[in-house]
């Protein structure tokens, strides 16, 4: 168990970070090169001003008409996306690990807050799952991979919550937690989760087309 722990907390973690950062750079660079070769219009029409205008309207809750039409989904989605960044970076237990390993530290969430935000993420994942199973259009669109991606995101939070509360088998669960986090990190650049990387460019391009060329709003 200890050897496994060391492996997951050591080399595998390094591997996950390398795959994640390397993957992000690779995806961005290869997509940019492909666009330069095949979709020159993207470069020709991209406008920083209109890209930012569109991105802001879509990042800020209720900034777009569609988000105003679906207030519950808008709030859940916004909080969910905030939390999946906040929790891993600012969780007390994680900050302690950084401190121990590298002697660096930063602001952290109180333990109760971290616990609560974790529950929020798990709740949001459940909400997305129910949506996928219940709403006919979303159900029709869903492929098995969509459920796998959702599980990939939920897993580190569920296992982390379990480990923190030291429920039965929490030591093993801690290893599963690290492993699932590493799998998630490594999966981001190469699955639908890559929308994290491509969102600003896609929204920005559509915003540029609409703003600079078509003189119309796109939100």
């Amino acid at each position: 168990m200890h050897a496994l722990y060391s492996f997951v907390a050591g080399p595998l973690l390094w591997a996950a970070f390398i795959v994640f950062f390397g993957g992000v750079v690779y995806r961005l660079v290869s997509m940019a090169l492909l666009a330069h070769k095949k979709d020159l219009v993207v470069y020709s029409y991209m406008s920083l001003r209109y890209a930012l205008r569109s991105i802001m309207h879509w990042l800020v809750p209720f900034g777009s008409l569609n988000s105003r039409k679906r207030p519950v989904l808008t709030i859940v989605t916004f909080i969910f996306h905030c939390c999946i960044f906040l929790v891993p970076i600012f969780l007390f237990a994680h900050v302690v690990l950084w401190k121990e390993s590298w002697n660096v530290s930063w602001w952290y969430l109180s333990e109760a807050t971290g616990d609560l935000l974790t529950l929020v993420v798990i709740g949001a994942c459940l909400f997305f799952l129910v949506r996928r199973l219940v709403l006919p259009d979303v159900k029709y669109l869903s492929s098995p991979s969509d459920f796998v991606v959702l599980a990939l995101v939920a897993a580190p939070f569920i296992t982390g919550f379990w480990t923190y509360h030291q429920w039965v088998g929490f030591r093993a669960m801690g290893i599963v937690h690290m492993l699932s986090g590493e799998i998630l990190l490594a999966a981001i650049p190469f699955t639908k989760l890559s929308h994290m990387i491509f969102f600003p460019f896609m929204r920005g391009y559509m915003g540029s087309e609409f703003g600079a060329i078509r003189h119309a709003r796109d939100w």
Binding site: M31, A32, L34, A35, K37, K38, D39, V42, R131, L135, D137, V138, L141, S142, S143, D146, V149, K192, S194, H195, F198, F199, F201, M202
Partner: peptide, 15 residues
Amino acid sequence: GARLKAYLETCVHCG
């Protein structure tokens, strides 16, 4: 090229 790839690969089927 990039547009087709990005559009197809990032659609998260949210409806």
